[in-house]
Write a protein that binds this DNA or RNA. Sequence first.
DNA 1: ATTATTATTTACCGATCACTACACAAATGT
DNA 2: ACATTTGTGTAGTGATCGGTAAATAATAAT
Lengths: 196, 196
Amino acid sequence: MGRQRSFDTDHVIEQAMLLFWERGYEAASMAELSAAMGLNPPSIYAAFGNKQALFERCTAHYVKHVAAYAPRALDEEATAAKALRRLVSEAIEAFCTEQRPKGCLLISAATNCGKGSECAQELLAGYRQASESMIADRIRRGIADGDMAVSVKPDLLAKFVSVLIQGFAAQARDGATADALHGVANLALRQVEVSL
Amino acid sequence: MGRQRSFDTDHVIEQAMLLFWERGYEAASMAELSAAMGLNPPSIYAAFGNKQALFERCTAHYVKHVAAYAPRALDEEATAAKALRRLVSEAIEAFCTEQRPKGCLLISAATNCGKGSECAQELLAGYRQASESMIADRIRRGIADGDMAVSVKPDLLAKFVSVLIQGFAAQARDGATADALHGVANLALRQVEVSL
DNA sequence: ATTATTATTTACCGATCACTACACAAATGT
DNA sequence: ACATTTGTGTAGTGATCGGTAAATAATAAT
């Protein structure tokens, strides 16, 4: 009962996510978010609670609709080495496309935070930790499957891949081209393919 | 003539730099900077102009007193490969020490910026570009000196090293230990030493 | 039609933002 | 001693921050 919503939740979350992605959590003001979403502040607060809760909805939306390539890349390839290379390659494409903000929301949206935003920082740090764990798990599976050398240390190699992806996100924000970053990825992952 | 300053410029710039380093450009408020520097706002503005100019002084101080290891590492080693390895190793130590904020001010202090802070963003982007160029120049010198294979592409390898360093800065902010990152660096730079 | 419930709009809240006017304190030049 | 110059402290500027009270509009149940 009662009046029905005049907006599509997924659409306004998408708009808010794009602004958070470009500006970061703190620098995206509620006034800008309100304009981008096409909603007056009371509608936003009635629907989502507060800025922190809105940001959590946006990060979940990002994980589901933007970063979905990551678990797919890790799951769909036959070997761990191919999975890692595809993960890195698709990350580069996602970070450098002209259609959306450069870089990665989970990596770059809460690096500069004042006293009131530790929640956002911890939220994204958790996503980054989970991502690194997923990579390590895929490497362990590769060793168990026999397609990766037993001498490989899963946590170490997973951190290497995380470092690469985080570095690529920073480079994409600075205007690096996808071509240049693919070249770096070839250089960086060469040894992984020859099985280390 | 006139009244003399009651504070040491280098000391208050150091305090401001530490706060910018930890919080980032926008999230470090003038009130916090004022408290950290032990100066009332009018003294800060009289001495340094405005927030943007203060930030420029702090970044210059950082380059001179914190990041000084970088040009030294590149200059003092006999071969390009050793120079790159020492650069990366000292960067890791600088990013992970408990004595100061984690990570790198030039990489992380202006990633989330609103509409009034493009200047700070461009300032740091310029330092990052200069750093990558310095690395590429050292690689070119190594090739000319005959201590690095002529097949190496200087700009590509320099971008690889930059990606590593930027990734390490992000990892350090997330609490990674120096040991873990040194391990990743060994993995990443192995092929550079066997001359690629 | 009436009532209850929910959404949207307008206008505004106290707090904090970067920044400064103004008075006063401390030094130098004559 | 006196005038001039410059730094410091108090207090406050308009603007913007995240968030909301109150009135109105639109739907549902009765």
